[in-house]
Structure formats: C-alpha cells, structure tokens
C-alpha cells in the first residue's frame, strides 16, 4: 500500500491521536515526544527492542499508564485524568495482555460476560449469547463453562481476545500477545488475530511476529529508547530499514 494512502486514511478519520506524549518512570524516560495517528480500520505493528517504550505506548492509549505530557485522543475523547473520560475510552478500546490476565475465579463465559453486563448494562442472556458467539469465532465455544486454569495458554489467550471483543470495541490493542506462549500455540493465536484483521478491526499490536506483520500490517513502527525511529509499510521496512538500529534489531529477531 502506498505511503500517501495510509497517512491519508489516518488523517481522514483518526481514531487514535497521540501528540508529543512523554512518559517517565522516575529518572527513566519511557516515551519521549511520541506522535502517532491511527486511522479507522488501520492495522499497526509496533516493534523494537525491549525497553523501547512500545508496551508503554499502547498502555497509555487506554490509560493503564498515565502519560506525563502531550495529548492522547481516542475516538474524539481526550484522555485527561477525569474518570468518566477514562472509562468511556476504555469501553471503546479492547486490550489483550502478554500474560492473558483472565479472571481465574470466573468461567470462560463469565469472563466474557462480566464487563458487558456491568459496564454496558446488557442483560445476562444477551451477554451470554454474545460471549458464546465470540467464543465460537475464536474456536473455543466448547470450553465456555471451564475455568481459565483448565485451558492451555493458547486457549486462554484466545479467550482473552474474545473477552475484549465482547465489549464491541472500536480498536484492539495487543501487548505482546504471543510472547508468553509455548511455540506450538503461537499460531492459533496469530490465526485468530489475522481473522480479526480481515474483519476490518482497527488494531495496534506490539509483537515480534514478523510473518504476522507482513500479512496484515498497514504500517510497521519501529521504536527505540522511547522514540519512534521509523515508520513504513511492512515490505519497505523489512526489505530496506533506514536506521542502523532497525537493521540491528531485524538481524537479531530473524536469526
């Protein structure tokens, strides 16, 4: 996809706007003046060495981390420190964590039903129907009444994806969704994500799965030391990375 078109969509209908955002943990600067626009339906892959700030960036987008400076606007709502804004943004933003973070005391279906019922206020029957529908989509409907600890890691991560989708978010954030998985389970999770991408979901993914990036990403963003160093379509990025650091990084993950 040509560069102009991509940035064109982003400017036409940006659903996430990150402007000059900084974030510090004590003396450590995790994000340094970061700018990012995500258009509706866009799929973005964030990569970079560990500690580069990529996880921090997406955690700021739904305010799990508070940014210290700059502006973040999600679906027209600026993330201030007002609770009402934060919660309304979080309803529109689904998040999938590296360590799944399923609620262990609730069944798979209950994990998916909790937030729609309590936050969106839909009925139990409707929540269950929606949960089962999405569990079918991630091919795990027969496990609906089991507890998370009874499932494999790959299954748990697919449940986590279904749980986030049950809130019918406008955008999905993935924070290294396959890093905690055994190698044989990575594919089932990536397949689910690819399908989701094909359905037109807006996605921001922190991942090192370059096959996935090639297949679905509109843009690959390379971060290092809290800054965005490079931004390109996947073909360009993988074939001809501009910065030395990106080259080094790609060499490391390929070998």
């Amino acid at each position: 996809m040509p560069q102009e078109t991509v940035s064109g969509t982003a400017q036409a209908a940006p659903i996430v706007v990150v402007e000059n955002v900084t974030k510090r943990f004590g003396a450590f600067t995790a994000l340094n003046d970061v700018n990012l626009r995500v258009g509706k339906g866009e799929k973005i892959v964030l990569c970079g060495p560990s500690g580069s700030g990529k996880s921090t960036l997406i955690r700021c987008i739904n305010h799990i981390e508070k940014h210290d400076g700059g502006r973040i606007v999600v679906d027209g709502v600026e993330l201030s420190h007002r609770l009402a804004d934060i919660n309304s943004v979080r309803c529109e933003v689904g998040m999938v964590f590296q360590s799944f973070n399923l609620f262990p005391h609730l069944t798979v279906a209950e994990n998916c039903m909790l937030a729609p019922m309590k936050v969106r206020g839909i009925s139990q029957a409707e929540a269950r129907a929606r949960a089962l529908g999405l569990l079918r989509k991630v091919r795990i409907q027969d496990q609906a009444d089991k507890y998370p600890a009874q499932l494999s890691g790959g299954q748990q991560q697919r449940v986590a994806i279904a749980r986030a989708l049950c809130m019918q978010p406008k955008i999905m954030l993935f924070d290294e969704p396959t890093s905690a998985l055994d190698p044989e389970m990575v594919k089932e999770v990536l397949d689910t994500m690819v399908e989701l991408a094909k359905d037109g979901m807006t996605m921001v993914c922190v991942t090192h799965e370059m096959g996935f990036a090639r297949e679905v990403a509109d843009r690959v963003i390379f971060m290092d030391r809290g800054c965005i160093l490079e931004e390109a379509d996947p073909e360009t990025f993988f074939r001809a990375p501009r910065s030395e650091r990106a080259k080094g990084f790609l060499n490391q993950i390929i070998h």
């Binding site: 979080r90 964590f97 399923l102 005391h105």
Partner: peptide, 24 residues
Amino acid sequence: GQIEAANALGLSGYLTYRYVIVPQ
C-alpha cells in the same frame, strides 16, 4: 494484571473490587 485487565475492560473501581479483587 488482574486490576489492569479489569481497568482495560472499563470496570470502575467499585466493580473491580466487587467482582474481580475481593472474590479472589
């Protein structure tokens, strides 16, 4: 991560305690 997951789903502080933290 339990609190983060609850936050990410838009659960308020009260709901997070009521349904996620206290039962566990």
